[in-house]
Amino acid sequence: MSGAGFLLDLHRCVGCGACVLACRIENDRAELAAWRRVLPLNLRRHPGGPTYFLSVACHHCEQPACLKGCPSGAYEKRADGIVVHREERCLGCRYCEMTCPFGTPRYDAARGVISKCHLCAPRVDAGRLPACVAACPTEALRLVTASTPPTGEATVRVPGFTDPASCRPSLAFLAPAGMRRAGLFRSLEEGLKR
């Protein structure tokens, strides 16, 4: 990760959805598709696998597939790493929905344009935290910038999250703590490699 992005502590996230709600309120998306979503993994707690929640939105990738594919130049990567989408340039062709391997861009049929998380750029520019980060009650979701990179314990590889298009997402995870859980985590990763 070289620019702005998110760090998610998988041990702390309890899947409460406060980040999703805060995002909806901040960006006036009560009636529209949410930019952020919380995806539970192994909610039924099957033995042999870890249980955690992935709170994900746009990953503000280092090599964004949406930006590369967009025919009208509606996507821009700012100097601080935030990938923003300029609606006034959007054709509504929905090609970015196909190119993004994380299912991030959302099509607003009523307006005929795509929209996506902009990491609350206006808030960040004003020195504030993104709404989702500020709302997280367990501090599981954190903002990462070039000046505050993730710690050495962070990993970008967790089961349920790969990067098939080599976009290099600016999203890092802190794995669950504890020897037993870490062991399960490793065993699943090894199992998935086979």
Partner: peptide, 13 residues
Amino acid sequence: LGQMRRAALAARG
């Protein structure tokens, strides 16, 4: 296209 009037912008990329 969702925004047909902007079709000419398709050449920008």
